[in-house]
C-alpha cells in the first residue's frame, strides 16, 4: 500500500511521529493512506478526537469515505502546518469560543494555505473540514470563499461559482428594483 504524505511535510510528520510515536492513518475515499499525528488530529478535529477516544481508529487506515485523496492531503497538510505554527493552548481556547466569538481573521500562513488551492479543491476542503468537525479550518476556508464573493455583482457571482440563474425575466426585474440599494453605489 502506498503511504502518501503531505507535500514537503514528510519530514515534519516523521518528527512528530518520533516524538510521541503515535500517529493515526487515514484512508481517503479512493484508498490512499495518510498519516497524521494523533495529538494534532484530536486537537483539530472533533470527529477524529471522538473516534480516537471511542477506539474506532483502524491501524490499517481509518476509512473516511466522504473525503477524496486531494482534500485529505490538504487536511493532513493543514494539521502538520498548524502543529508547527500555533501553540496548542491558544488554539483550544479559540475552538471552544467559536460559536460565541466573532470570526477570527485567518493568520498569514493560513491565508497562503487556502490561496494556493484551486476552486474545486477549496470546496472539497470546506466539506472535509465540516465532515471532520475542524472548526478552525472551516473558519479559514469559509472566510476565503466569502472573500471571493465580496463586491461582485450577481452576474459575476454566478460566473465565479457556476450557479444557474433560475429567475424568470419578470422576477429578475422585480428583484433588481427591490435590491436597487445594493446594486448602485451612493
Amino acid at each position: 500500500m502506498e503511504v502518501d504524505k503531505g507535500k514537503g511535510e514528510a519530514e515534519e510528520t516523521r518528527k512528530v511521529a518520533e516524538a510521541d510515536r503515535d500517529t493515526v492513518t487515514l484512508k481517503s475515499s479512493d484508498g490512499k493512506l495518510f498519516e497524521v499525528s494523533k495529538e494534532a488530529a484530536a486537537r483539530l478535529s472533533t470527529v477524529l478526537a471522538g473516534m480516537i477516544a471511542g477506539g474506532s481508529i483502524d491501524d490499517n487506515g481509518t476509512d473516511l469515505k466522504q473525503i477524496g485523496s486531494e482534500a485529505l492531503e490538504n487536511v493532513v497538510d493543514y494539521c502538520n502546518k498548524h502543529a508547527n505554527s500555533i501553540p496548542s493552548a491558544a488554539l483550544i481556547s479559540s475552538s471552544i469560543s467559536f460559536n460565541t466569538a466573532p470570526f477570527k481573521e485567518p493568520e498569514e500562513w493560513e491565508r497562503k494555505f487556502v490561496d494556493r488551492l484551486s476552486h474545486d479543491a477549496l470546496f472539497d476542503l470546506v466539506e472535509a473540514a465540516n465532515f471532520l468537525g475542524m472548526e478552525r479550518l472551516l473558519d479559514v476556508t469559509c472566510h476565503k470563499i466569502s472573500e471571493m464573493m465580496k463586491g461582485k455583482s450577481p452576474d459575476q457571482i454566478r460566473e465565479v461559482f457556476n450557479i444557474k440563474n433560475d429567475y424568470t425575466k419578470e422576477e429578475l426585474e422585480e428583484i433588481r428594483q427591490e435590491l436597487a440599494w445594493a446594486f448602485y453605489d451612493d
Binding site: S146, K150, Y167, L179, A182
Partner: peptide, 18 residues
Amino acid sequence: ILQRLTDGKDIARVEGVS
C-alpha cells in the same frame, strides 16, 4: 460563508443570484 460577508450589499447581491 454568507455570515462572513460584512456588507449587507454583498448579501443582497447574493440574493439576486438565484
